[in-house]
Computed example of a mutant assay.
Amino acid sequence: MNKSTQPTIGITTFNQNEDGQYHVKNTFVQAIRRCGGLPILLPPGQPEESAAILEVVDGLIFSGGGDLDPATYNGEYHPAISSVDSTRDAFELKLFNQASSSDIPMLGICRGLAVMAVSCGASLISHIPLEFGKLVVHTGDSEESVKHQVAINPQSHLASIMEATTVEVVSMHHQSIRTLPTGWRLAARAIDGVVEAIECEYHPWAIGVQWHPELAIDNPQQLRIFEALVETARVRKIRNQNRRLNLVQHP
């Protein structure tokens, strides 16, 4: 592998736990390494750090975690809402907002999809069972208990990446977006109608999935999502390197 063209993928993390540790599921790191990328963990910090981060990374993953504060989307509180972290909310919303003005590829997973959607003006369903019932189990105590099918839009970028229009996914969420934000298209739904994936129409590569592909990286279909992100980031890095080289040779 040519290390000079190896893309750096920034992965957002949980805020500090009781032991003062930032953390994220290790399979995120495994997935990026397996696909040829260099993973870098991004702990929640000051929103003004976003510009500096975007100078360092070639791609971004907005990972899962606790619920967004309902105040970020003018939503209503529900007892099921948990692990709200205003520091992480502010950091990730600003990071996505700045990144969306660039061509950096971005993948949102579970909470990460919510970050993308809310940043673009969407609202969230506070608790899925209240509006969609329990036809599909979207969250539970084990990965096996929350596997279900989703239908992928055949015309979507996601369908071409996963090479499928129906896939089994592992999900761990009790919320979903209520309506598509402006400039985004539907990429996948569960059979109960819950939105499971969205794609940005005005950005070269910005996809949000409600499920957790990092919990199924031994499944080739799920790994393809990370492969596509890393490859897009690699191409972008090479293009930027060539552009800088041309500026040096032809100032």
Rank of each mutant, 00 (worst) to 15 (best):
G133A: 00
S171M: 13
K94H: 04
M116E: 11
Y77W: 10
Q221E: 08
H250F: 07
E168W: 06
T27P: 00
Q16K: 14
F28E: 02
K3I: 06
Y202L: 15
L107C: 13
M162R: 08
S176Q: 14
R178E: 10
V118H: 03
G108P: 10
V195W: 09
N26Y: 15
A228F: 09
L180K: 11
T139H: 15
F14H: 10
H138T: 05
M106L: 14
N219Y: 12
P79K: 12
H148Y: 09
S82T: 08
A216H: 07
M106F: 07
I11C: 01
C35A: 14
S142D: 09
I61C: 08
Y77T: 07
S145F: 00
N97D: 15
H138V: 05
R239A: 11
V169I: 11
N26K: 15
A151S: 12
Y73C: 01
G66R: 01
A159H: 03
V194L: 04
H203Q: 12
L180C: 13
T12M: 04
Q210F: 02
K147W: 00
W211D: 11
E55F: 01
L124P: 06
S145E: 13
I191C: 08
Q30E: 15
V146I: 15
R34E: 05
M1R: 11
G140W: 07
H127I: 04
S123V: 12
C35W: 00
M172I: 04
N17M: 07
S4R: 12
T179P: 01
G59F: 02
H78D: 07
N17F: 01
E144G: 11
Q149V: 11
D85L: 04
V146Y: 09
T12G: 01
P79F: 03
Q155D: 07
P213Y: 05
